[in-house]
Design a protein around this nucleic acid. Structure first.
Lengths: 244, 244
DNA sequence: ATTCTGAACCAATCTTACAATGGTTGATGT
DNA sequence: ACATCAACCATTGTAAGATTGGTTCAGAAT
C-alpha cells in the first residue's frame, strides 16, 4: 500500500507540476500547504518530492523552500570560504593560468590614464614608510592592471583571486616585523610589467608577468634559515593544516 | 585658525591612532564618540579623517564605520551585479582565456570517478525529455569538468563565470518554446572534450575546448532569421557553448 | 563677512526579533 | 507494522529599529 500511496502522491505531484506555469527557479508552495492542496499527507508528499529531487527536477533547502530546476551552485564567491578550502599551491597555479593573459589584455586595452596610475602606484610603493602603506598601493597597482583589461567579468574574477591570495599570505605578513624596506625583486618585476604594458608589447607583458610569478614561486619554495622557517614557513604549515 | 584647528585635530588623531593597538581592518569608534574623546569638534575630526583617508590609512563607509587600512575591494562576486556590468563578448573572451586551460588541467587531474560521471552526464543529456532536464545535466557536466581540475580556487572562479554566463543567456532561454531536441553539434563537441580528458591527452583536451568555444562564438555572430535564432542559436549558446 | 559650532536630518548598513520552511522525531491509531 | 498527525529543530527570510558616515542649515564667534 505504501507503494501505491507514494505512487498516487507522485502522480498527483507530477500532474500539478505539469498543470501550473513554472518559470524555472520559481518556488513551489510550502510542503504543508501543497500537501493539503493535493489531498495527500505531508509524508507522502515528501517521498514524491524526494523522487523528483533525485531526478534533478526540483531542489529544496531548509528555510528557503522547494524550487523548480536543478540546485544552483553555491555561486557566492565568499573569499573566506574559498580561503579555507584552498592553499598556496592552488593560488600559484591559478595565477600562472590567469595573470599572464591578463597582462597581455592590459597591454592591448589599457588607457593612458591607466598607465599613469600604474606609475603613480609604483612610485608610492617606493615612498611608503610602513608595510601597511606599501601593501595598500601594491594592491592598488594590481587592481589597475586588472581594470585596464576593460573586461568587468575578468576583473571580478581577478578581484576574488587577489582577495584569496592576500588572505592566504596575510598570516606571514602580520608577524613580519620588518616594516620599511620592501624587497627590490618585486619592484623590478613590476616595472618590467608596466613598461611592457606602456609599450603595448603584448608578448613582453605576458612574459614579464610569467617571470614575476615564477620568481614568486621560487621564493616560496626556497629554503631558509631555521629562524625564518620558524617565523614564516612553519606558520604557513600550521595555518594550512588548520584550513584543511 | 581653521588651519591650526584642523592641524590640532589631525595631530590628536594621529597620536590617538599611534597610541591604540590597531589590528588592521579594525573599526574605529564612531565619529561622534571619537570627537568627544579627542576633545575636538566633529567637523574638525572629519577633516582630519579625510586627510588620513586620502593617505590610504583609513577608509570609511556609511552605516559601517571607519576602519584601519586601505579600502577593501568589493570582493563579493555577486553574480547579479556582475551580470549587470558585463556582456556576452566579455563572457566569451573570458571563457576563451580560461576554459582551454581548465580542460588541460582536467585531463591531467581527473579521477576515473570524475570521467565516469562525465559520461553519465552526457548520457543523461541525450536521454533528457525536456529542456529543463537537458540543461540540468549539461550544467552538471560542466561542473564535473571543473571539479576534476582538483583546484578549489579555480573551481570557485569557474562557478562564478558559469553563473554569469547562464544569467546572461537566461532571458533568451525563457522565450525559447522549443523543448525536446538538443542539437547534435554540442553533443559532438562535448564527446570530443571528454574523450580527450579520458585519454589524458592534455593538448587535445585544450584544443577540443578551444574549437568548441570557437564554434559557439561563430554561432553567436552568425545572422539568422528571428525564428531560427530562437530555435537554434540560443540552444548553441546555452548547451554547446556551455559544454566547451 | 567669514568661519566655526552644534544640532538635525539623510541614506546606507547593521542588529535584532519574529515568522516561515524543509527536515526530523515520536506518539497515536488503524 | 505502517500510516497519520502534531510538535519540535535548524536554517533562512523578513521587517522594524538602532547605528553610522555624509550633509545641510541656522546661529554664534571671530
Amino acid at each position: 500500500m505504501d507503494d501505491s500511496a507514494t505512487e498516487t502522491a507522485l502522480s498527483k505531484l507530477r500532474t500539478y507540476l505539469a498543470q501550473i506555469e513554472m518559470p524555472l527557479d520559481s518556488r513551489l508552495p510550502p510542503e504543508r500547504e501543497l500537501a493539503e492542496t493535493l489531498g495527500v499527507t505531508r509524508a507522502g508528499l515528501r517521498k514524491a518530492l524526494s523522487v523528483l529531487e533525485s531526478e534533478n527536477q526540483i531542489w529544496r533547502h531548509v528555510g528557503k523552500g522547494t524550487f523548480i530546476g536543478s540546485r544552483p551552485i553555491d555561486t557566492l564567491a565568499d573569499v573566506a570560504a574559498i580561503t579555507r578550502r584552498t592553499n598556496p599551491a592552488e593560488v600559484m597555479r591559478t595565477r600562472m593560468l590567469l595573470e599572464p593573459e591578463v597582462a597581455r589584455m592590459a597591454a592591448l586595452n589599457a588607457t593612458s590614464a591607466h598607465i599613469a596610475e600604474m606609475h603613480q602606484c609604483m612610485q608610492r610603493t617606493r615612498a611608503a614608510q610602513t608595510w601597511r602603506q606599501y601593501e595598500a598601493w601594491d594592491n592598488r597597482l594590481h587592481r589597475v592592471i586588472a581594470e585596464s583589461t576593460q573586461n568587468s567579468l575578468l576583473l571580478a574574477l581577478l578581484d576574488t583571486l587577489n582577495a584569496v591570495r592576500r588572505a592566504i599570505v596575510w598570516g606571514r605578513l602580520r608577524v613580519d616585523k620588518v616594516k620599511p624596506a620592501p624587497n627590490h625583486h618585486s619592484f623590478e618585476d613590476h616595472e618590467a610589467i608596466v613598461a611592457a604594458i606602456a609599450d603595448r608589447d603584448l608578448n613582453r607583458a605576458a612574459g614579464a608577468m610569467r617571470i614575476h610569478l615564477e620568481n614568486v614561486e621560487r621564493n616560496l619554495l626556497r629554503a631558509r634559515p631555521a629562524s625564518e622557517i620558524m617565523a614564516a614557513d612553519v606558520r604557513d604549515l600550521v595555518s594550512a593544516a588548520a584550513r584543511a
